[in-house]
Computed example of a mutant assay.
Amino acid sequence: MTPHTMTNYPLSTWLKLLLLALVWGSSFMLIKKGLLSYTPTEVAALRLAAAAAALAPFALWRLRTVKGKQWLVLLSVGMTGSLLPAFLFAFAQTQLDSGVTGTLNALTPLFTLIIGALLFSQWVSRRTIIGLGIGFAGTLLLVLVQGNGQVALNAYALFIVLATLCYGLNLNFIKNYLPNLSPVTITGVSLLMVLPVAVLYLAGPADVVNKLASGPQAWWSLLAVVTLGVIGTALALVLFNHLVQIASAIFASSVTYLIPIVAITLGVLDGELISIYQVAGMVLILFGVWSANRQPSTPVAGANAATVSESLDDLEADEAR
């Protein structure tokens, strides 16, 4: 990011960026509060239903703009961008603190770059490769080293890694197959396509109604999950797209670096303990993400590096949890 990119925006634009970071950074705490009363599958289903309901009026109006093979791509987007990550994050946070989860979520742009290079022939610089290596070194530290310094596999952290891999696939699907559809259309219609899974589960095996009768805690947990779906997914997407319009994709995507700060801060305020090993892993991940996405200071011959970087930046935060 050049000085021009980051300094010429009014205070209101910066405040909107901070608001977006607060909304997306608090998503992990909302999942944690939802899990106090509901199972991971119930939390995920409620979240999907709330998000789909919030965007349904916009999505139904835009159904006519979807053509042919775009339906299959939108189903894939719904699966990799919403359905699978919602369940993976909920299961992971039964054993992971929200601060750690929020930092692992920053792997999304790294997987976006890797999948873009491997499956869609996108150019990747040596600096990007180094950044990827640093980011994954931090990931290994969080996955393999416990808070007390002992080496042991934390399998639940792998759920987050898999979720960010899904996000990486999702963003590349959008970039390469749905360039003419607006983000609101993509998100709204794809959520509608996976909504039946959430509805069938909530109407069948889920036990939400009985839990609501158990006391006020269940209602507070429900409020947390509904807030996560409506504000953390639907309205946050609108705010992100607004930032892209009034500033730039690069500026808007800088929220990637603020989300873990919010998640960690909220986790500490809620009594979570952060060890020196976890801090080291978090720092490595964030530095790796920054290095991998940093634009070159001069044009690169034979590759439109700036275009690739800005396109990925435009997409990497669209599906924050």
Rank of each mutant, 00 (worst) to 15 (best):
M1C: 14
H4T: 14
N8K: 15
P10N: 05
L11K: 07
S12T: 06
T13D: 00
K16R: 15
L17P: 00
L17N: 00
L20M: 13
A21T: 04
G25L: 05
S26H: 04
F28E: 00
M29C: 07
K32Q: 13
K33H: 09
K33I: 10
G34I: 03
S37F: 07
S37C: 07
Y38C: 01
T39Y: 10
V43H: 04
A44E: 01
A45T: 02
A45K: 02
L46V: 01
L48Y: 03
A50R: 01
A50E: 01
A53W: 03
L55Y: 04
L60F: 00
K69M: 14
W71V: 10
W71P: 00
V73A: 15
V77C: 03
L84V: 01
L84G: 01
A86D: 05
F87Q: 12
F87T: 02
A90R: 04
T94N: 12
L96D: 03
S98A: 06
V100N: 02
T108Q: 07
G116A: 05
L118W: 06
L118C: 09
L119F: 10
F120C: 00
S121A: 15
T128M: 15
G131P: 04
G133Y: 01
I134C: 02
I134G: 01
F136S: 09
T139I: 08
L141G: 11
Q150T: 15
L153S: 12
A155P: 10
A157N: 13
L158I: 08
L158K: 03
F159N: 09
L162E: 05
L165N: 03
L169A: 10
N170L: 12
K175M: 13
N180Q: 14
P183H: 10
I186N: 00
G188Y: 07
V189E: 13
M193R: 08
M193S: 11
L200A: 03
L202C: 04
L202N: 04
D207A: 12
N210P: 06
A213D: 14
S214I: 02
A218H: 00
W219V: 01
W220F: 14
S221L: 06
L223K: 05
V238Q: 12
L239H: 05
L239D: 08
N241Y: 10
A249I: 06
I250R: 14
I250C: 11
S253M: 08
S254L: 14
T256Y: 08
T256S: 15
I259D: 04
P260W: 10
V262C: 09
I264D: 03
D270T: 11
I274C: 09
I274M: 11
Q278I: 04
Q278K: 12
G281T: 07
M282Q: 02
L286N: 14
F287D: 05
F287Q: 09
F287V: 12
S291H: 15
P296C: 01
S297R: 14
G302V: 02
T307K: 10
S309D: 11
E319M: 15
